[in-house]
């Protein structure tokens, strides 16, 4: 069996909503895939009209072409693997419940929002609200793991409930805002107001991070749990591989004291 490959035939004139793809493949397999109706703005198109479809393995999907205007890639993905060759639009992996997704380029806003299980690896950068909550939702990402090898925008992990977001680069402002629990790692610092309104959870940060007045300095410590986390990230390779090589003391700040205050920012060099 060869990977099911969908190659965009030409540049899109508007934003395409690809949310029906993964649930349809899981439910119906390849039958009628070319005729699957997808929305671009107010108009419907058959999938085969926009993509050249090759291959026969519905559990191993590759999307190719300039997909930066394609939203909700892998929305509702429950199993199997999905690879995006190039950039991806917004809401990548929305409400994903399993499986494995890889993006070789950048992704736009709201990736991994409502994600519950599975893993997403982004080789480029990610936009705002990565692993966050949809407007009005009480919880953001609630499980699984997102790995970003580049940088991430603002509000990463907003209202995050569970799981881990690991960023080799930096995170913008309000990293882990209103976070309920889970783990956020940034290896090249964070912007302003990190952990704003966080109740529980961990922001593990190397590099520059301005600490808000609502976080209490709890001193410098060697924490076994940090090493346990580092070791679990070793197989990811890249910037994550060497973290466990040495004992790394962390400066622990607890907060946000304006919220529940049981969260923590762990800063290390």
């Amino acid at each position: 069996m060869t990977a099911l490959t969908l190659t965009l035939k030409q540049a899109l004139p508007g934003r395409l909503d690809l949310s029906p793809l993964s649930p349809t493949l899981a439910r119906d397999g390849l039958g009628g895939l070319a005729a699957l109706q997808v929305h671009m703005g107010t108009r419907q198109h058959a999938l085969g009209e926009l993509f050249a479809i090759k291959g026969d393995d519905a559990s191993n999907v590759v999307l190719a072409g300039d997909l930066s205007r394609v939203d909700q890639i892998g929305a509702g993905l429950a199993a199997g693997s999905l690879r995006v060759e190039g950039h991806a639009g917004a809401y990548l992996g929305l409400a994903m419940t399993g499986g494995r997704m890889t993006v070789t380029g950048n992704v736009a806003e709201f990736a991994a929002v409502g994600m519950r299980k599975g893993s997403i690896e982004i080789l480029g950068n990610a936009g705002d609200y990565l692993g966050g909550a949809l407007p009005g939702a009480l919880q953001g990402m609630a499980g699984g793991q997102v790995v970003v090898h580049g940088d991430v925008g603002a509000r990463c992990g907003d209202r995050m409930r569970r799981g881990a977001i690991l960023v080799a680069g930096s995170i913008g402002d309000y990293a882990g805002s209103r976070m309920l629990a889970g783990t956020l790692l940034a290896l090249q610092g964070c912007g302003a107001h990190a952990g704003y309104g966080m109740r529980r959870g961990t922001l593990l940060v190397r590099g520059t991070i301005p600490i808000d007045a609502t976080f209490a300095d709890c001193g410098r410590h060697v924490l076994p749990i940090v090493h346990l986390l580092f070791r679990s990230w070793q197989p990811l390779g890249g910037a994550f591989a060497g973290l466990a090589d040495q004992v790394r003391p962390v400066q622990r700040f607890m907060g946000d004291r304006g919220a529940d205050g049981k969260g923590e920012i762990l800063h290390f060099e």
């Binding site: 749990i225 679990s232 049981k262």
Partner: peptide
């Protein structure tokens, strides 16, 4: 506080 690492809770 707890952390879930690789499906195991610590």
């Amino acid at each position: 506080a707890s952390k879930v690492v690789g499906g195991r809770r610590f």
